[in-house]
Design a protein around this nucleic acid. Sequence first.
DNA 1: CGAGGTCCTGGCCATCCGGCCAGTTTCCGG
DNA 2: CCGGAAACTGGCCGGATGGCCAGGACCTCG
Lengths: 120, 120
Amino acid sequence: MSEDNAREIVLSLEIDDPALAARLATLLGNVAGLRLAAPGEQATATIVSRDMPEDIALTQRELDVLALMAEGASNKMIARQLGISVHTVKFHVGSLLDKLDATGRTDAVAHAARRGVIEL
Amino acid sequence: MSEDNAREIVLSLEIDDPALAARLATLLGNVAGLRLAAPGEQATATIVSRDMPEDIALTQRELDVLALMAEGASNKMIARQLGISVHTVKFHVGSLLDKLDATGRTDAVAHAARRGVIEL
DNA sequence: CGAGGTCCTGGCCATCCGGCCAGTTTCCGG
DNA sequence: CCGGAAACTGGCCGGATGGCCAGGACCTCG
């Protein structure tokens, strides 16, 4: 294997905490083979660290339903998957809309993803 | 301000390309003040680099509709926002479901977010 | 000029969604 | 032991959603 692809690695930062961002920039600035991305530059990889707002208190069952919702499952499919009735699914979906402050299931999944409750 | 929070920074890796992951791990392993996360360990930040599949060819209008869908907007609301009829919105939504290989609007938004077409 | 793509609109309809009412069971903590 | 939270189920219903049919307008490329 040649090492021609072993070019300089360019990293971009997406850090909410300014102090942490500064420390990382300092530390990484002195590493050979590494470079921080210029503004707008295409980076090899991105370092991400988001401030966690407050995590929402979701029950296990709500998390089950939410995960399936994010997969695009209908209430009927969720009911089959979890072995419960459609009514119960709707019940949990209703709770999720409430807790996630969403207007519909699409909004709920979007909010949950934004808040890191689920991973897309 | 105390500098008590200037503890060791723990980084986790989420790199699709194994070669790149290995190089980063090597480079970062020798940086004082930095440490790579143990499996399952809570990290300070995450280094992310995803292989880009192929970007989907969406028309401008479809992107407009998609963006509003991700906000949880109903077809009626989207129609009002864009100044077009609900029928036309449905038309674009249909195209999106088709192009994104989704079963419903929720699935469409999830797919689009996963593929980087939209930012949540 | 014709073909094809995008964008736009209408009607029709089966299904899905979400909110409302009601009720049961189980389990845990005060 | 009683209260509350979680999970579960049912009926009902207005509105939303998505698929199907049809059409027209515009623009670009061949």
